[in-house]
Design a protein around this nucleic acid. Structure first.
Length: 808
DNA sequence: GAGTTGGTCGCC
DNA sequence: GCGACCAACTCG
């Protein structure tokens, strides 16, 4: 029995610290029975009572707020968009990530459901307004008003008219959601009538002729767009035909479903190795016993982790439960998707960044309505509104893309564990190179540890050679290629085999420097050098997007000796075409994959052997499985090692192990060549041997001695402001407060200016807290945030990131 | 003295 | 995030 909903607590869509609390509203009688928690509503907020969207958290019959209450203006939903689980997860997420509750709620729903705000001016007295204002309205009494878009004299005239009461300003809250509507057409005449119409057409009406002839053959309704393509007609022809009364046109809502567009063959479960079978058995036992156990599934590349996942999911489904599988964005390749869809068919929902807002919304709705019971997706799919979760799988659990870098700064692994507790179901973390955190927990028995030590069919690991570039670089005319790599590529090209070349983008740069005076071309807004872009022939800033022309003379000393330095994919591509003029090269980097679908297209083309060499950044390292690739070259293995980040070795090791697994996946033998300036570094030597265990021990020892994770927890506090002194002052104040609040076992690193101190005209300072046990720390940090509300108005911002993955 | 500009306050 | 409000400032 529902309580009569006379009052509701609403979280409003105003992401600030001061409004990060529920507000009580009165519920109009006509939607007393309609309203329930988790629904979106539109409420008046602030002195101007502008309308904003909000989420209902609670409905009740007794108001707890003493002041005057406003009424809920409208309901946006008939059914709650957030279920009880989401309503419980939100506050937890807000607390642990130091985020606004509204941001946490928003992140759980598809962006199509997020409100879009606009303003509207209403003419209330049309007699006393200036001519320009009357012209603005034309024949209308209401008009959308975008303050930015209306040019100056008119803008202030409108605002003045508003102040004097001639105009009214209304707030409009729009759902961004638009069901996809598609134009359909149908012949309005029968076959005989159509044929008659055709005979009466003028001789030059070729397009209409084509259309009517086709329609007389196909009387059923058809999608106009498809027909346009098929018959090579323009929309104009259809409009014409409609005008003449030969066809009728109508709109129909279309369900977008990216899965069904893939033409996928059904696959059957494969036979399992004893290790795989043991892993499956261990996990499904926990599904059956409804235990929220976390497993670490450690399996070398090619050991068949995916098949283990699929059989676990199959078991969950057989128990009438659902399954969630997270995969890093870049491994969400068509190959991967096909494998899952091939096994589970249309009950699979896909959530990845390549989807449009509408497609994502449709997938979300299929999940919510229970039509989709298996969800495969990247980070944010961890919030997929599945009911009766049976298992959560996180593949490549060490991937840093599981951590969101903006508010709310959550880690998908933590959210997964929370949901697993809620549903009493197991979590499986899978990786060939687990994060040290997870591997250490497995060691301690916090996670259950499953191992797949053997590659399927005992295929040998590819032979990996390290090339010392300190010697090699001098020997060739090409600074990015050793002779060994050139020779190896040469051989593959002759044998018509494929090559993958990877450029480690971290620390990658090709900047302009003057050879005479050493001047480096920097961004005017950020403390970073501009990078050279060959395609647009310009210098760009990767942080703020600033772009300028390539200088021909040094702006500082006027010398003409200004050149670019460093290695970028574009430059390497140039070198490659010189080295191997006959080779077909595909380049894959941020520039070539910006457009939607470009990523998949490049990989497909490479898979179809339309190129001999695939050149790219990290994004090519993941999950690719090409039988004809027999050589993988890493051009610069160690650019990341130079960075002052304690995870640099871990990342380098993981990346190299991963790419090495790419060579020789099928019958042919594979070879890996890693070029490096640090051939003695343990991360490289152990990646060469694919020895994770040894790496784990070495690295743990270093972390232990340095007092880093997983031995310590870390929290990063950043202060930023338009003026450097403000940011510095803020971080030192914060430092002082923390110093007194923390126990003696905690360590504070810094405060220091960030490595890139200025981004987009803002200055950044940071400090890092390392601690083992500080029960009062979270509360202290929340209080610091609470207190810095004041300074926020002058542009001084404090942000807190728990367990950050980037320290620079 | 009306009208603009800038900073601060509080939102149920 | 944004309008209301107040105080300072500006200009004929």
């Amino acid at each position: 029995m529902l309580a009569i909903a006379q009052y509701a607590e609403v979280i409003v869509d105003v992401p600030t610290m001061q409004t990060n609390q529920p507000y009580t509203y009165k519920v109009k009688h006509n939607f007393e029975n309609e309203l329930s928690p988790g629904m979106r509503v539109i409420v008046p907020f602030g002195r101007g009572s502008r309308l904003v969207q909000g989420f209902v958290m609670r409905v009740f019959s007794q108001a707890s707020f003493a002041g005057e209450l406003k009424e809920i203006e409208a309901l946006t939903d008939l059914e709650p968009v957030l279920d009880a689980e989401a309503l419980a997860l939100g506050p937890w997420l807000a607390q642990t990530t130091f985020s606004f509750l509204i941001s946490c709620l928003q992140v759980m729903i598809p962006s199509a459901l997020r409100a879009k705000y606009s303003k509207e001016l209403e003419l209330t007295n049309k007699f006393n307004v200036p001519e320009a204002v009357r012209a603005f309205f034309g024949a209308h009494t209401k008009k959308l008003f975008d303050e930015q878009k209306v040019a100056e004299p008119l803008r202030s005239q409108l605002l003045t008219a508003r102040r004097t009461g001639m105009l009214k300003l209304n707030y409009v809250v729009n759902d961004r959601l638009q069901a996809k509507q598609v134009s359909f057409i149908k012949a309005a005449l029968d076959k005989a009538e159509l044929e008659q119409a055709v005979s009466k057409l003028r001789a030059n009406a070729r397009n209409l002729h084509t259309l009517l002839t086709y329609l007389s053959q196909h009387p059923q309704a058809m999608q106009q767009g498809l027909l346009e393509k098929k018959l090579a007609l323009s929309p104009e022809t259809f409009r014409n035909a409609e005008k003449k009364g030969w066809i009728t046109r109508f709109k129909q809502v279309q369900y977008r479903n990216p899965v069904r567009q893939l033409n996928v063959k059904r696959t059957v479960p494969r036979h399992l190795t004893p290790a795989q079978a043991a892993a499956v058995a261990a996990v499904i036992a926990q599904i059956d016993q409804q235990q929220p156990t976390t497993f670490l599934l450690e399996g070398v590349t090619g050991s068949g982790k995916t098949e283990v996942y699929l059989q676990i999911i199959a078991h969950a489904l057989a128990q009438k439960k659902t399954a969630l599988m997270l995969v890093p964005e870049i491994s969400l390749t068509p190959q991967m998707v096909k494998r899952v869809v091939g096994r589970f068919g249309t009950q699979v929902a896909l959530l990845h960044s390549g989807l449009s807002d509408g497609e994502r919304f449709d997938e979300w709705r299929r999940i919510k309505e229970g039509q989709a019971t298996v969800v495969v997706g990247a980070r944010s799919a961890v919030f997929a509104p599945l009911k009766r979760l049976g298992v959560i799988i996180i593949d490549e659990e060490h991937e840093s893309s599981y951590k969101q870098e903006k508010m709310p700064r959550y880690h998908a692994r933590d959210v997964a564990k929370w949901r697993a507790d809620f549903h009493s179901c197991p979590v499986v973390l899978g990786s060939a190179t687990p994060s040290l955190e997870s591997r250490a927990r497995a060691q301690k028995g916090v996670y259950r540890w499953l191992k797949l030590p053997q590659r399927i069919n005992n295929k040998p690991l590819p032979q990996v050679s390290l090339i010392d570039m300190r010697q090699e670089a001098k020997k060739t005319r090409f600074p990015d290629f050793s002779q060994a790599l050139i020779d190896a590529v040469e051989i593959r090209l002759a044998k018509k085999e494929q090559v993958i070349l990877m450029l480690n983008r971290r620390g990658y740069s090709s900047f302009m420097m003057c050879r005479d005076c050493g001047y480096v071309l920097n961004c005017p807004n950020c403390d970073i050098s501009l990078t050279f872009h060959l395609d647009t022939h310009s210098m760009k800033c990767h942080y703020c997007g600033h772009e300028e022309a390539i200088p021909h003379v040094c702006p500082s000393c006027g010398s003409r000796q200004i050149r670019y330095y460093g290695t970028g994919t574009q430059k390497v591509e140039q070198e490659l075409t010189q080295l191997f003029p006959q080779a077909r090269i595909l380049r894959m980097d941020v520039d070539t994959t910006k457009r939607k679908g470009a990523h998949a297209r490049i990989l497909r083309e490479f898979g179809e052997r339309k190129a001999d060499i695939l050149l790219g950044t990290q994004m090519i390292a993941k999950g690719l499985d090409y039988p004809d690739v027999t050589l993988v070259g890493v051009l610069n293995a160690d650019t990341a090692l130079g960075l002052a980040d304690f995870r640099a070795s871990e990342r380098t090791f993981q990346l190299l192990t991963q790419v090495s697994g790419r060579a020789g996946r099928a019958q042919k033998e594979g070879k890996v060549i890693i070029q490096t300036y640090n051939p003695e570094h343990y991360a490289l030597l152990l990646a060469q041997k694919q020895d994770y265990e040894q790496f784990f021990m070495r690295e743990m020892d270093i972390r232990h001695r340095g007092g880093y994770p997983p031995y310590y927890f870390t929290i990063q506090v950043t202060a930023s402001a338009p003026a450097e002194s403000q940011a510095a002052k803020k971080i030192f104040e914060t430092y002082k407060t923390l110093k007194t609040a923390l126990s003696s076992s905690a360590v504070i690193l810094g405060p220091t200016p960030k490595a890139i101190m200025r981004i987009n005209k803002r200055y950044y300072y940071q400090l890092i807290i390392k601690y083992k046990k500080e029960p009062g720390l979270a509360a202290c940090l929340s209080e610091l945030l609470q207190k810095s509300q004041r300074s926020e108005r002058t542009g001084v911002l404090l942000t807190i990131d728990r367990e950050p993955l980037n320290f620079i």
